[in-house]
Design a protein around this nucleic acid. Sequence first.
DNA 1: CTGTAATTTCAGAAATTTCTGAAAGTTCAG
DNA 2: CTGAACTTTCAGAAATTTCTGAAATTACAG
Lengths: 190, 190
Amino acid sequence: MNLAPTIQAFVLHFGEMGSRWGINRTVGQIYALLYVSPKPLCADEIVDGLGISRSNVSMSLRELQAWNLVILKHLPNDRRDFFTAPEDVWQIFRTLAEERRKREIDPTLSVLRELLMTDPKTEEESFAHTRLSQMHGLIEQVTNWYDDVKRLDTERLATLLSLGSKVTKLLDAKDRIVSIGRRRSQTGKS
Amino acid sequence: MNLAPTIQAFVLHFGEMGSRWGINRTVGQIYALLYVSPKPLCADEIVDGLGISRSNVSMSLRELQAWNLVILKHLPNDRRDFFTAPEDVWQIFRTLAEERRKREIDPTLSVLRELLMTDPKTEEESFAHTRLSQMHGLIEQVTNWYDDVKRLDTERLATLLSLGSKVTKLLDAKDRIVSIGRRRSQTGKS
DNA sequence: CTGTAATTTCAGAAATTTCTGAAAGTTCAG
DNA sequence: CTGAACTTTCAGAAATTTCTGAAATTACAG
């Protein structure tokens, strides 16, 4: 490894965190390296940068492509594959959310749906049934929200985030304003 | 293992998913079992239910306690430790979000802050610096939103979720209504 | 105290995941 | 075609994580 100290520290940290995240160390490191590189890198540059085997790089890049976290590029007059991380951090964030949902949420949702189809026979199963149903309800509510919000463009998403919990105040405010409007004009319309 | 088929399926699925989540299979299974049990279970009941070693149960319960996902109870005239999962799924959701944040986000945030303190020396480092700064900005924005929202009670949180992206429409609506109010009364006030 | 019922610890066995080197596959210029 | 430049595959080595049984520890009733 022969990287600037800051870059090296970032890459190593991402490798460590990778494990806490369910992606492995190498995958995390490669992603981090691509993320901070001003230009696309080819596999051998990654091998040099991280000091790992060529085959490991190949497999890890494959995984990153499956996650849609990395873009394959070709330079003119060069047969090699080059890779970059997408520019827009918000886009990366969305992609990550999307992929994690596919892998971590959807399978559970479908198992829950399946299990909820069967009628509970015993007292015990009946209790379990209501618990599964609660969990299903929660996950569905959260993913519906997510489906709804993910369609927003970055600017609106940022507005929504910066608003935070104030939206509930806004709700109250809306009601107040609307009712004032009504009182004044007698033609109120929500 | 001698559980009702539905319960068994749920427990096994949760075990599998556990691995995709960074908690291990046993921990996932124990949590699932407690979640669907109408009454607190003691360690030996879990051993019977899941067919795993007593010591594994002990260690896994320890981990679940560290995650705040399990509650230790004592029954009168019984020296054994009994465990349940919290009732309220929303509370569980919050706990999970909180713990994942502590483990998966905060360390990265602090590393990023640290690295951003140093001045970039080369062109390369300078590029990396802006990328780190972008990532830092995004994470901070998202966690600030989260900090803000997590204080809401369950009801308000549910409202906010069911509203989804409509909040942005609401924002527009507010502006419109306020301006109508102004036009009508000449005393508009946001 | 003593003995019993419980929990915890921990060394190392078992299982799983990650990583490597060697071989095979692909692509393309000449 | 041929062979050079590159990428992928994959068996098994290495590393890591999980799990177990045995021993140690704790708690407490008698």
